[in-house]
Write a protein that binds this DNA or RNA. Structure first.
Length: 394
RNA sequence: GGCGCAUUCGUCUAGGGGUUAGGACGCCGGCCUCUCACGCCGGUAACAGGGGUUCGAAUCCCCUAUGCGCUACCA
């Protein structure tokens, strides 16, 4: 059994094609490319279905055998001339085609190589493939493949034709429009498990209401028969949310390891820092921005911080806070939290009015991890110096 | 052009004759709160259109529209 390399199996395909010729289900065709083009153009002009006109189908076997020796030729499938095929597909249930619509497909090309149709059926049978799961674009080829299985006297496998993934404009998802290469998603900080979770949901859903699945849960819950028939638009908005959900479910050390490749190599990231941002990132690559301020020295004020520092009460709050440092006996995050809250009461400030200037002074950001972690990471000196510096801002 | 497949909130979907058509993302509001998030609560929004069948259709049938696929000596 496989893997199979087509070029090494030319003999096999040829033999199988010959069997079909013996039984009259295939025939040699000597038509030139020019003639084929002519036929096609004529059919097009007359508004007919474009198909091989079966010119060589009625050649006598002896005649064909003789010409094969000296003339270039292909082998074509002798499709039934009338009737209707119906077949079952796990996803689409029942599908039907008229034989009349089908072409006498080339099985073996002039160069001796098989076409996909022959190779696919022969290989799958020899490899004892039980289920063929492929894209919807193969649905129109089903009758040919079935005819092949039947002609060889083989039991066809079970088929499932999956719906296509679509661009936001409903066109078939193309590799050119936006980058859909999985590597690019990994590089942008999507977890493989989240990716799988998202893609599985594009065209499939269990009866229940779950949207977040681990790989194991997914394997357990997935039923191919429940796959959707219509194509689904690949919209990464929900992917971001799913990724965030998976990130939050990660054990702390796994999360730390996962973001490491997305951070500046020289950063010495502590457990406390990592823990402080786990609920704040939807993409692993977000961690870089979230953590950056920890490693900026001296402090770099962002736009919001500048604004917060120039507010009316900022100076008052900060100088009071600075004064508080004179009496500190036992510096800690909780001490800091306590004194700020006290100042808040004294100034009748709370929420962002109180905290934005303080965060701006300490971290250069108005948002971010909890202040306790920040303050304890920086330590008394640095925090005090930064408050001092903020007082001189402007 | 011919043939095939498809069509439920903006998006992903649940739904198999009787439902106030459910969930999720997003968006909007609120709560929580040291900021931002997370979380929680609430709101917004859909059966493509038309004919049948039926006491009763999102569900079954037909037509139309739209989208997609195939129509190679490519896969």
């Amino acid at each position: 059994m496989g893997p199979y390399t087509q070029s090494e199996r030319l003999e096999t395909y040829r033999n199988h094609a010959d069997k079909l010729i013996e039984s009259g289900q295939a025939y040699h065709c000597f038509c030139t490319a020019e003639r084929l083009t002519q036929v096609r153009e004529r059919q097009q002009k007359m508004g007919l279905a474009v198909r091989y006109d079966r010119h060589c189908r009625n050649l006598t076997t002896e005649d064909a055998r003789e010409r094969v020796k000296s003339e270039p030729h292909v082998i074509r499938l002798a499709i039934p001339e009338s009737g209707r095929v119906t077949f079952k597909d796990i996803i689409r249930k029942k599908v039907a085609f008229d034989w009349q619509q089908l072409d006498d497909q080339v099985l073996i090309k002039t160069d001796g190589f098989p076409t996909y149709h022959l190779a696919n059926v022969v290989d799958d049978h020899l490899m004892e493939i039980s289920h063929v799961i492929r894209g919807e674009e193969w649905l129109p080829s089903m009758p040919k493949h079935l005819f092949l299985y039947e002609s060889f006297g083989w039991e066809p496998p079970t088929f499932a034709h999956l719906p296509l993934l679509l661009n936001p404009d409903r066109s078939k998802l193309s590799k050119r429009q936006g980058d859909v290469a999985v590597e690019s998603y990994r590089d942008r900080g999507y977890l493989p498990a989240a990716m799988l979770n998202f893609v599985a949901l594009l065209g499939w859903h269990e009866q229940g209401n779950r949207d977040i699945f681990t790989l194991t849960e997914l394997i357990d819950a997935f039923e191919i028969g429940r796959v959707q028939k219509g194509g689904a638009i690949f919209d990464a908005t929900k992917l971001n949310w799913i990724n965030g959900q998976h990130i939050r479910q990660l054990p702390p050390d796994e999360f730390a390891a996962a973001i490491r490749p997305h951070l500046a190599p020289e950063w010495d990231v502590t457990k406390a820092m990592v823990a402080a941002i786990q609920t704040k990132v939807n993409l692993l690559s977000d961690a870089q921005d979230q953590l950056a301020f920890f490693f900026e020295d001296p402090v770099v004020y962002d736009e919001d911080s500048r604004q917060a520092l120039s507010s009316a009460q900022a100076k008052g709050v900060l100088s009071t806070l600075l004064a508080g440092f004179d009496a500190v006996s036992d510096f800690s995050g909780d001490w800091f939290l306590g004194i700020v809250k006290q100042i808040g009461e004294d100034f009748s400030l709370k929420g962002r009015d109180l905290w934005h200037p303080i965060r701006a002074a300490v971290a250069g950001r108005v948002t971010g991890p909890d202040i306790v972690t920040i303050v304890e990471t920086f330590g008394l000196e640095k925090v005090r110096d930064r408050i001092q510096a903020a007082l001189n801002f402007e």
